[in-house]
Every structure is written in C-alpha cells, then in structure tokens.
C-alpha cells in the first residue's frame, strides 16, 4: 500500500484544495446581493465536502484501505445527519420563540 502514494496524485489533491479554497473565498466575498444566500451556502457546503473527500481519500489514504476499515470509519458519520438537523432546527425554532414571546 505504501507504493500506492504517488507524487502525482498528491500534487493533484494539493491543487484541487488550493483552487477550491480560492473559489470558495471569492464566492463568499463577491456574491451578488440580489441572489439568495441559500444558494451560496449550498455551494460552499458542497465545495467543503469535496475538499473533505480528497483529504480523507487521498491524504489519509482511506480510499486504498480494505473495505471493512472504510465502513468502520465512515458509517458512524451517518449520525451527523440527525445531529445537524436536530440542533439547527431546534436553534431556528428557539429564534422564532424569542421573537414571538419577546424574550
């Protein structure tokens, strides 16, 4: 597996991370006011997940491990779907409550 690390793929990942970060920052700064921010946030999250994929798959070499290890590492992360939804919905609801009852 050591032989699987090629300088070429490392440099490709480096440039992907570099360029995607520049695109993200440029989008965050120059996003036109009239377009909804939700679209911007969607793309920012998407680009971040792309970066995370390359770091975990190539830099951390997970792509080249045996399938049981990949499943063991990635399957608990499914909990994040509940984690994010539950807490962000709760926070939003709390924000509404604060406005309605004037806390």
């Amino acid at each position: 597996m050591a032989q699987a690390i090629s300088i070429r793929s490392v440099m490709i990942v480096f440039w992907v991370l570099f360029i995607v970060t520049i695109v993200e920052v440029a989008m965050a700064i120059y996003w036109p006011e009239e377009l909804p921010k939700g679209i911007l946030d969607f793309f920012l999250v998407l680009f971040t997940l792309v970066k995370a994929y390359f770091i975990v798959a190539e830099f951390m070499h997970l792509k080249y491990e045996l399938r049981p290890l990949i499943i063991m590492v990635l399957s608990p992360l499914i909990l994040f779907i509940w984690f994010i939804l539950a807490f962000v919905i709760d926070g939003t609801w709390w924000g509404y409550l604060k406005q309605w009852i004037g806390l």
């Binding site: 984690f83 994010i84 807490f87 962000v88 709760d90 926070g91 939003t92 709390w94 924000g95 604060k98 406005q99």
Partner: peptide, 11 residues
C-alpha cells in the same frame, strides 16, 4: 453544530 444552533437562534 452547537455554534450553528446558536447562530440560527440569533437575531
């Protein structure tokens, strides 16, 4: 996520 939750509740 707790940061996101507080941020969602802030005016």
């Amino acid at each position: 996520i707790s940061y996101a939750s507080i941020r969602a509740s802030a005016e």
